[in-house]
Amino acid sequence: MEVRTIKVFTTVDNINLHTQVVDMSMTYGQQFGPTYLDGADVTKIKPHNSHEGKTFYVLPNDDTLRVEAFEYYHTTDPSFLGRYMSALNHTKKWKYPQVNGLTSIKWADNNCYLATALLTLQQIELKFNPPALQDAYYRARAGEAANFCALILAYCNKTVGELGDVRETMSYLFQHANLDSCKRVLNVVCKTCGQQQTTLKGVEAVMYMGTLSYEQFKKGVQIPCTCGKQATKYLVQQESPFVMMSAPPAQYELKHGTFTCASEYTGNYQCGHYKHITSKETLYCIDGALLTKSSEYKGPITDVFYKENSYTTTIK
């Protein structure tokens, strides 16, 4: 009895394709271990004539594949690729409408935090270190965002349907971005203890939790000093293409032309909904596939993004 075979390709990165001759009487799992086709788990399936010449994702289970996976995804987590594939199996079914010149995501599976993050990423200057993220990001900007969303979920250790947080998501993504040249110098002034300067680099240099107003941050924000008295913390120097200011959701007025974009969060910790506000020729609110415009805006804002380049204080 002759062994019926077909020729397929296996890959971990969709760049390096490895030619395989597979036995049609055995499952993919018996031949390769966990195997995925377009995100779908085909591990328990036997090869079919229609699979001839198709590319299958496999887990990096030998040295060659491990090197290829690390170079593309910059992670050695053995569960990463499987999590990416199972997320992709959902995100490829989502709709990605162009809204006001940006790629958004039609609401499904509690994905409003991903839509808000995706919209924000198209408006701030950011370059990702893992080629996987950078490639998928370019495709997302062009309207094909399924891979990018699935990668975000995998890097953030999230599953489809789980509630997510924009600030946490951005923080994970910033860790995989090139923020080497970003720098922030802060000064804390206390009447009792004097003053202390701190220099922050990388992710810490672009994120701040405690106030939404970048102007206020430049002037000074009140913080408790270690001595128990009130101290003032203010920005001395900022070198970065953008800054992200966050605070627990509270009524906040966004003035046209003073910011790049913002995240609105309605609801409580267990259950809520994100919308995205962007400042173009007027203010726009993007909620999944829905767009509304207004000249002014007041609502429960939790993150505001500002364009920056270089700032030095005039406070002496």
Score class of each variant (00 low, 15 high):
134 Q>W: 03
2 E>N: 11
220 G>F: 02
279 S>K: 00
130 P>Y: 00
2 E>W: 09
245 M>H: 01
232 T>P: 01
200 L>K: 10
77 D>R: 05
313 T>P: 09
176 H>M: 11
239 E>F: 09
216 Q>A: 11
131 P>S: 04
89 N>M: 08
229 K>V: 07
73 Y>P: 03
220 G>Q: 03
237 Q>P: 00
137 Y>A: 08
9 F>Y: 12
159 T>E: 10
94 W>R: 05
49 N>V: 13
265 Y>C: 00
106 K>N: 10
49 N>T: 12
256 H>R: 12
20 Q>V: 14
82 G>H: 15
289 A>L: 08
36 Y>P: 04
197 Q>G: 06
235 L>M: 03
128 F>M: 02
113 Y>A: 03
105 I>K: 04
149 C>T: 12
258 T>H: 09
144 E>M: 08
242 F>I: 00
156 C>K: 04
141 R>T: 10
316 K>F: 13
3 V>A: 13
314 T>F: 15
259 F>V: 03
50 S>M: 13
104 S>C: 13
292 T>P: 02
154 A>V: 05
180 D>Y: 10
22 V>N: 04
45 I>P: 05
273 H>T: 02
118 L>I: 11
18 H>S: 06
115 A>C: 12
257 G>L: 05
308 E>S: 09
125 E>K: 11
206 V>C: 08
230 Q>S: 12
125 E>T: 08
168 E>W: 06
19 T>H: 12
294 S>Y: 14
58 V>C: 11
203 V>R: 11
116 T>R: 03
5 T>F: 11
146 A>N: 03
233 K>H: 09
67 V>S: 13
195 Q>P: 09
257 G>Y: 02
250 A>Q: 15
256 H>K: 15
204 E>C: 06
164 G>V: 00
72 Y>C: 08
248 P>T: 08
88 L>Q: 04
176 H>D: 00
199 T>A: 09
86 S>G: 11
193 C>L: 02
69 A>S: 10
236 V>W: 06
106 K>V: 15
105 I>N: 01
275 K>P: 00
234 Y>A: 06
172 Y>A: 09
6 I>A: 08
79 S>Y: 10
101 G>T: 05
267 G>N: 06
242 F>A: 00
139 R>Y: 09
121 L>D: 01
288 G>N: 06
165 D>S: 15
269 Y>D: 15
150 A>N: 04
182 C>E: 02
223 I>Q: 10
77 D>M: 06
205 A>M: 00
132 A>M: 04
80 F>H: 03
293 K>T: 14
127 K>T: 13
213 S>V: 04
111 N>P: 05
307 K>F: 11
169 T>V: 11
83 R>T: 06
166 V>K: 03
126 L>Y: 02
76 T>H: 09
113 Y>T: 05
168 E>D: 05
29 G>Q: 11
299 G>F: 03
312 T>I: 12
163 L>Q: 07
186 L>F: 15
10 T>A: 09
306 Y>R: 01
136 A>F: 08
286 I>H: 04
288 G>A: 04
288 G>R: 01
74 H>V: 04
245 M>V: 00
28 Y>L: 13
67 V>D: 13
269 Y>V: 14
70 F>N: 09
255 K>E: 15
100 N>P: 03
140 A>V: 13
115 A>M: 07
273 H>D: 00
7 K>F: 12
56 F>R: 03
249 P>Q: 03
260 T>H: 07
206 V>K: 01
83 R>Q: 08
207 M>N: 03
44 K>Y: 08
159 T>V: 09
116 T>W: 00
285 C>T: 15
226 T>W: 09
44 K>F: 14
133 L>E: 02
309 N>K: 12
164 G>C: 04
132 A>S: 07
175 Q>H: 14
146 A>Q: 08
97 P>E: 12
242 F>W: 10
170 M>N: 03
126 L>E: 04
146 A>V: 06
34 P>A: 12
83 R>E: 05
294 S>K: 09
210 G>S: 00
153 L>P: 03
42 V>I: 14
193 C>W: 01
109 D>R: 04
316 K>V: 15
186 L>V: 15
4 R>V: 13
104 S>Y: 03
11 T>L: 05
153 L>C: 07
81 L>Q: 07
21 V>W: 10
312 T>N: 09
44 K>Q: 10
269 Y>R: 15
23 D>P: 10
73 Y>I: 01
291 L>S: 15
233 K>N: 06
309 N>H: 09
63 D>K: 08
99 V>F: 14
236 V>D: 04
52 E>D: 12
148 F>L: 11
38 D>C: 10
90 H>C: 11
303 D>W: 01
43 T>S: 12
257 G>T: 05
239 E>C: 12
94 W>Y: 04
160 V>E: 00
209 M>L: 11
122 Q>I: 04
60 P>Q: 07
302 T>M: 00
130 P>I: 06
